[in-house]
Structures are given as C-alpha cells and as structure tokens.
Amino acid sequence: MYVSGGMTLIPSMKQRLAAPSDLIDLSSLPELEGIEQLNDAQDSMLRVGGLTRHNEVAGNVLIQRHLPVLGQVAAAIGDNQVRNRGTLGGSIANADPAADLPAALLAMKASVNTQDRQISADEFFLDLFETALDAGDIVVSVDFSTPQQAAYEKFRHPASGYAVVGVLVACFADGVRVGVTGAGPCAFRACALEDALNQQFLPQAVDAVAIPDAGFNSDIHASAEYRAHLIKVLTKRAVASLLS
C-alpha cells in the first residue's frame, strides 16, 4: 500500500482498521509535486500534483488567482498540522465520505491522472472509501477546470472538522455544477439542483427541488433527513454568496 501524507492511514493503522503488510512512501517522488497552468482550448485548467500538501494548495499563488475556491476548500480541511502534512492525492484516493476535496473535484470537472490513464471525477468516486483506482495506481495529479465563479459552503463538524455536509457550486459557461460531500457514501453531483440552478440562478430556485435522503449517511452527528436538508441550505448559501 502507498502512503503519502498518512494523515488518515497512520491513525487507521494505529486503530487496527488498516493493516498493510508493506508501505511504500511516495513523498520523494518529484513527479507528484507542483501546481501548473495548462493550456486547453475550452477552459483554463490547473494541474495540481498528487503530493501537494493542503496548505500548499491553500497558499499557492496560481490557485489564488485562477481557482481560489480550491484554496478555500483546502484551508477548510482538518487543522493546521494536518494541512501541513496531508496531500490532495492521498485525500481523494482515501475517498472519505466526509472529505472536502471530492466535492471540489466533482464541481470543477476535474480529471484524475494516474501513471497511465485519466479518470474523470464523475467516474472516480464509487462508494464508501472506494474509488476507480486499481491496486498499484498512484494519483499523479489532478486537472481542474477553472469556473467563472464558485463557492464552497460547509457545515463543519465542530470537533473533527470533517464536513457533516459540504456543497460546492461552480458556474461554467455551459452550466452550473453542484458537488456534494458528507451526505452519501461518497461525494456526488446533485443533478436536480444543477437543473434548477441552470433554469434560474437564485437561492429560491433550490426550494422546489426534492432531495431524497435514501441511502444517505445517518449517524450520531446527523440523520439522513437532516443531511438532505443541509444540502439545500448550503446550496442556497453558496448561490447567495455568488450573487452578492
């Protein structure tokens, strides 16, 4: 098994939730580092190396200029010590249902680059801690499209810092995308909300949309019904902040 920042894997090993026979540390691979701008005919894109630490994402000048919302998402992860160590590639490969970055990948039309293939974010997150990565795959980098504007709203668990629910609304020339984390077994796009916001980009457009809570997470922190409710509330807040 690979380890990058180890901010989930090492605590999981200590709790005996993971017991890999061998660990391969990716931290000395320069190919996994760096943030660069890509020239694409359609959208402006940013490529972020898989080994990029969350605090590097949050403080990077290119990201602040072209994709500030990704910096805000990274700055909302865990605490400072975790952000100094945890990596973008590690977080998405782990695919915690309450992690922040998966919502950003989905809303920002991201593609995940491994050693030999490219996986669209829409096909990357499959289930609880399950992604389209195969054994041996490494997240080399992630390509993000830069939206015209975007906002991330998170209902943060006060102790853990994880998203009880997080919603990222991104506006592109060809439509609105809504990435949701924390609510289901893995992050997903709320297509019904996207349709409503494409009709009318106003907070009240969210009111008429039904968000069924079937299959949503339900635990001591929040019921499935409450999480479904939070999706709408946070989407409205994100839209309102983009209109203000």
């Binding site: 180890g6 605590p11 010590q81 100094n84």
Partner: peptide
C-alpha cells in the same frame, strides 16, 4: 512545518 509526530512514521 508543524506536524503531529504521533501520526508520522519515523522512517
């Protein structure tokens, strides 16, 4: 950079 040394392997 500040990190939590209980979540880092010595190696």
């Amino acid at each position: 950079a500040a990190v939590k040394s209980c979540a880092v392997l010595a190696v």
